[in-house]
Design a protein around this nucleic acid. Sequence first.
DNA 1: AATCATTTAAAACGATCGTTTTAAATCTGT
DNA 2: ACAGATTTAAAACGATCGTTTTAAATGATT
Lengths: 212, 212
Amino acid sequence: MTQTDTKTRLLDAAESLFSQQGFANTSLRAITTAAKANLAAANYHFGSKEALLRAVLERRLLPLNQQRSDRIDQVLTEAATTGAIPGTEALVRAFIEPTFAFRRNSTGSSEFISIVGRAMTSADPVVRDLFLALVHPLINKLHLALCLALPHLPSKLIFTRIFFTMGAMGHCICFSGFAQMFKDNSDSNSEDDDFMTNNLISFVTAGLEAPC
Amino acid sequence: MTQTDTKTRLLDAAESLFSQQGFANTSLRAITTAAKANLAAANYHFGSKEALLRAVLERRLLPLNQQRSDRIDQVLTEAATTGAIPGTEALVRAFIEPTFAFRRNSTGSSEFISIVGRAMTSADPVVRDLFLALVHPLINKLHLALCLALPHLPSKLIFTRIFFTMGAMGHCICFSGFAQMFKDNSDSNSEDDDFMTNNLISFVTAGLEAPC
DNA sequence: AATCATTTAAAACGATCGTTTTAAATCTGT
DNA sequence: ACAGATTTAAAACGATCGTTTTAAATGATT
């Protein structure tokens, strides 16, 4: 094993290039060159380009979803012990905050997240289905939790609003090009990131709690 | 001129295939075959694949944006004559309703809209920049109008929330795959479409009006 | 009838793609 | 030191891509 695993370098390079150019527009040659690895190494370790994408997604999304799932459980058990119903905003925070905290962890995480933000509505069924399969159980859990938090709203309406939530979130997560439309694109520090995150949470909470 | 213009048939075929497979995954050969036209006809009429995409976007997006712009103006002048401030929900409706009404007009419109829904966050700069340039003026107009409607909120916050609005909307517009996650995918009639539209409007209005 | 724009046909261009193969080299664990 | 897994090198595979070219055919206009 050299300084870093070739497998890891391939995952890092693929993650970075997929996020910058998309899956279809990124060649295995570009990935292996960026990873300072041989072209054959990609197929040796992963078998195919699609399997490489799956590995890229699973490496970070499985732990992240576990974290979000745990935080939803935490809100639910706290509510259960108090005898109260879970709070909408607490559930929204459980769903959103780990994503943005995770995003700040490293450059790789940040790039990864923009793959995810796009994967949801990707026209490419390979990308979309891979993502949906990974996220499906978590969405179901959030849906059930929000049905407890908003017992006066029909289940289908809540699901639709979760749908909007994921749209706003995904959009927020890969907003290259949109920042240019706003004048003061001077500083995009973590300060702006917190601004964005908190606004997203209040926006989405208000939307979820809107009267029927 | 035959039954329908070759140029029009090329636009229709490109629109349909771009929406189903994405820009990068759709070849000019697939487009010209679907349009029952010659491969050379695509470059003859449009010059390049990118120019064909631009033509596909402009054909429908320019009239649609004009319609949305007119309706925003309408809300603003009505408010001005009354002396009142414009309503948030009226502005949201002006922005959203034409899109969904337009979507119901024809199969082509529906397919077109899902190109737009994805273009916003596309990893491909060709697709993204084309779309952003076409939408930029309308977003600025909506932003100014909402600043009048919500004078107690800072301008930057409102812009961020418009950002979330476009995310929820774009997501809502090309939700292939997401419907599968909800059990009763039996009927996706225009009834469901109205349900979706009205929920989106109330969700987004509540989010925009949320306290600061 | 003549001119010009349109459309078709067929082929080729250079380029890039995912994948596979063959061989040698290097590393790792026992 | 040996065996097995890893990595490199280089080349080739069939396929697809956007674009261009050449030629002939068809259309519409004057």
